[in-house]
Design a binder for these strands. Structure first.
Lengths: 173, 173
DNA sequence: TATTGTTATACTCTATAACTATA
DNA sequence: TATAGTTATAGAGTATAACAATA
């Protein structure tokens, strides 16, 4: 499907193409990324980057990064869970959770308390401030999502989620 | 749409919920990310990460990163273009191109040659080795894409691309 | 032996300010 | 003055190996 140089509008006729004289683009014309547009993953990455950049900007007002918001919201939804459960739920590596939780704890949003029945583990619970901030963060995220997905009706949004789900399943994840 | 704690299966009846006693999850049960699943961007990011991680793994066999492959492929498709044209085509910042081109040049895949009419600029052209590697990289990327998008028929793939395009356009990009 | 949380580390991607040489 | 390429730097996300405490 994807082929190099299939899109070059300056393409010279085959006869004019000398062995080492590839058709050159003009130094001033606008150049495209057509050679990559056959790759669905390329489009997914570019659109996702746009969306994530805006979400990051929005959450900055609440002093949250995307991953920090995700962690806080899952803790509020599942108070008492262990760090390893949280890492599994978000598919992030356990080491990467540590500094995130350090920050949430030092900001008084989350508590780490020893699990009596397993003294290796910590139970994570939100404080009232953590619950309030999680709510505000989800509201901000919802408003952000309306900006990007508001043009899609319910059926189209479901279609997008369904297609994404099938791609995820194809990965064997 | 997205609401904290809407998905907690351990939710106690309202009357049993004391002010500071949130319903706790069991330390052993599997915890989900339901509190974030209302966010379409969250699904996009997770699926995109899966796809990109596999592509990165595949391209490693050719000693290419995703961004390095993208740069090489666009140069092969538009030989003679300037670095600023390339940066615009891929929506990457000019500074981030420099080390990528340094690497491609030192590996003998790309040439930087002064533009006679504008001595500030460099024209980028692929070598024969660069052309060959670009072709192999696109073949590897196509095979990788079949793994993830092969289950979708042509219509579904077009649907996915169309929906992604509308999200991109909603962003004003 | 295996698991929980931790430390240290590294790689990738992205972004911005400021410099140089040219225009 | 503006632009092309560059340097330096920083932040964010992700990943792995190895350790101490505990199971």
């Amino acid at each position: 499907m994807a082929q190099v140089s299939s899109s070059n509008k300056n393409a010279a006729p085959a006869l004019a193409a000398a062995p080492d004289a590839a058709p050159r683009v003009d130094t001033h014309e606008v150049v495209d990324d057509a050679a990559l547009q056959g790759l669905v993953g390329y489009h997914m990455r570019r659109v996702t980057n746009l969306v994530q950049a805006d979400l990051a900007r929005v959450l900055k007002d609440l002093d949250l990064r995307i991953i920090t918001m995700s962690v806080l919201v899952v803790i509020v939804d599942h108070p008492g869970l262990r760090q390893s459960q949280l890492a599994d739920a978000l598919s992030i590596e356990r080491p990467n959770l540590v500094s995130i939780l350090d920050e949430l704890e030092s900001r008084g949003l989350v508590l780490r308390t020893r699990v009596p029945t397993d003294r290796r583990a910590y139970a994570l619970t939100p404080t009232r401030a953590g619950e309030r901030l999680a709510e505000r963060a989800l509201e901000a995220a919802d408003e952000h999502e309306r900006k990007f997905f508001g043009d899609l009706d319910a059926k189209e949004r479901a279609q997008l989620l369904s297609l994404l789900g099938r791609v995820r399943d194809a990965a064997g994840a």
